[in-house]
Amino acid sequence: MIPGPFQFHRPQSVADAVKLLSSLGDEARPLAGGHSLVPMMKLRLATPEHLVDLHGIGALKGIRREGDTLVIGAMTTQHELVASPEIAALVPIVKETSLQIAEPQVRYRGTLGGNVANGDPGNDMPGLMMALGARYRLEGPDGVRDVDAVDFYQGAYFTALEPGELLTEIAIPVPPSGHGYAYEKLKRKIGDYATAAAAVVLTLSAGKVATCRIGLTNLSETPLLAEDAAACVIGITLDEATLAKAADLARAVMQPAADGRGPAEYRTHVGGIMVMRALKRAAARAA
């Protein structure tokens, strides 16, 4: 439980960080909250020769509104998301989800950027970002580009990030006021990754579902957008039969691993239950 030797860098700007990451190559890793990387280093499952600590870069922090979009700096901590009045008012599901990540000690250090960029299928934010239609800003040696969350994840710990690139911002389209939302997470205990979790963001029109997006956490190698499940509730008043149908359609895209949380069959089953519960709770909240 002791990490191997490494060089520590603390750049003061995104440009310097990108320069370091691209010049040091594969042996360099950016350090955000450290709650995924540092445990891996202690187990020597990760042995980076260089750590590029992002805590010196003030520009990576903060939450601001730009028109219909909420832009969140990558180094904004989960605690800051929980405490933010803008988040609570505009995208309350981000607060609800943040509160289900680990425990307060972790949330004081863990960052939104680290959570979405690491590519760990157990992380809660990626599935939610898919449900919210978020985009990630990536800055690298060849410039700046934006990638949709739904296009970002390629496999467990594999993402669209190119060597030397840094995820700097998360842009979330502000959902319409009166939208319904819910993040339903089944976990074994506080601090655990999800056995299965579902994020639902929807709007109602005359009691029927007008729009709906469903993100899934830890039910495959990557977070998932359950598009068929979401499509099947559109134009319908949620009843038990529709909920069951949505759960089955969502289950069709799940491919969870068997682990200590249960066999794949169980995780898929409860994944569907989480979808039903999230849909129900989101609809109840929608105006």
């Binding site: 089944l186 074994r188 949380r261 249960g262 066999p263 169980y266 089953h269 409860v270």
Partner: peptide, 8 residues
């Protein structure tokens, strides 16, 4: 008697 075994 953890969750998945109860379900099973």
């Amino acid at each position: 008697h953890d969750f998945w075994r109860n379900w099973q």
